[in-house]
Simulated assay, not measured.
Amino acid sequence: MRLTLHTDYALRTLLYLGARPEVRVSIREIAHAYGISENHLVKVVHRLGQGEFIKTIRGRGGGLMLARPAEEIRIGTVVRFTEEDMMLVDCDGLSSGGRPCILSPACRLRGVLGEALDAFMGVLDRYTLADILQPTDLARLFPELAKPSS
């Protein structure tokens, strides 16, 4: 399974914010750090706000912060929230607007793939943002994260 760019950017954003939980960060700063589109990141941030993973503060001194501790943000929950389609194959023809697969009545692949997806998500559910957040590693990649907060 390949995660969408939207989910990739969401996880990157959460990692960046988690590296400095006491500091408000701008979308521009995150986009610049990762070399990604600010416009696309605005959509990602909006979605993360809807899911109450981050909070946004407008105006002077505003910015983005985690809405709750990194220990309370499960990676599987983020992936489920940001991925629009978790279907591995389109046996019913729903996403393509086409016909169901001719093998559907007798095929057991759907069950096997469902089991595989459950296992994949089960692994992601075992980890929190705090588990994968290594501030020292991130500080090496992004020197601005090593600066003391003001």
Rank of each mutant, 00 (worst) to 15 (best):
S150N: 10
E52G: 00
A70I: 06
D118E: 15
S26A: 08
R60H: 12
A19S: 15
T82N: 06
F81I: 01
R12E: 08
G93C: 14
Q50G: 01
S96H: 13
I27E: 10
E38T: 12
G114M: 07
I57K: 14
L14T: 02
G59Y: 09
I102A: 09
N39K: 14
H6Y: 06
D85S: 15
L138S: 07
L64R: 01
A106G: 00
K55P: 00
A70D: 06
V44F: 03
G122P: 03
R20M: 12
Y34G: 05
H32D: 15
G122H: 03
E71T: 13
T7W: 03
R2H: 07
V25W: 05
Y34L: 11
H46Y: 14
T13D: 04
S149I: 00
E84N: 14
R99S: 15
H6N: 08
P105E: 08
A31C: 10
K43T: 06
L88H: 04
R47I: 00
C101G: 05
G59Q: 11
P69V: 01
S37A: 14
I30A: 06
F120M: 04
A106Q: 11
D85R: 15
R140W: 11
K147I: 07
M86C: 03
H40D: 10
V45N: 02
L141W: 02
N39T: 13
L48W: 01
A70T: 04
S95M: 14
E115C: 01
G97D: 11
E52S: 10
G97S: 13
G59S: 08
S96C: 15
P143D: 11
P100R: 15
R68M: 08
T82R: 03
L5C: 02
T82Q: 14
E83R: 13
R24T: 11
R47D: 08
R110F: 08
L145T: 05
I57N: 04
R2E: 10
E22W: 05
Y127I: 03
P69A: 08
P69I: 00
R140S: 12
L145N: 05
V23E: 12
L113H: 04
I73V: 13
V123Y: 07
A106H: 07
S150I: 06
K147P: 00
P135Q: 07
L3Y: 10
I54C: 01
F53D: 02
L41Y: 05
D118K: 14
R68G: 01
H6E: 08
V78Y: 02
T13R: 02
F120V: 10
H40P: 00
P143R: 11
P105I: 11
I36P: 02
G18A: 07
K147H: 12
E52H: 09
R28E: 14
G93W: 14
E52K: 13
R110K: 15
V123R: 07
D131A: 06
S37M: 09
R47P: 00
A70F: 03
K147R: 15
E22I: 00
R110H: 14
R28P: 00
L15S: 05
V45E: 04
V23I: 06
M1T: 07
V112I: 15
Y16S: 02
R20Y: 04
L11P: 03
G122D: 04
V45H: 03
S37I: 09
L11F: 04
P135H: 07
A139R: 13
G49K: 11
L94M: 15
R74Q: 09
S95I: 15
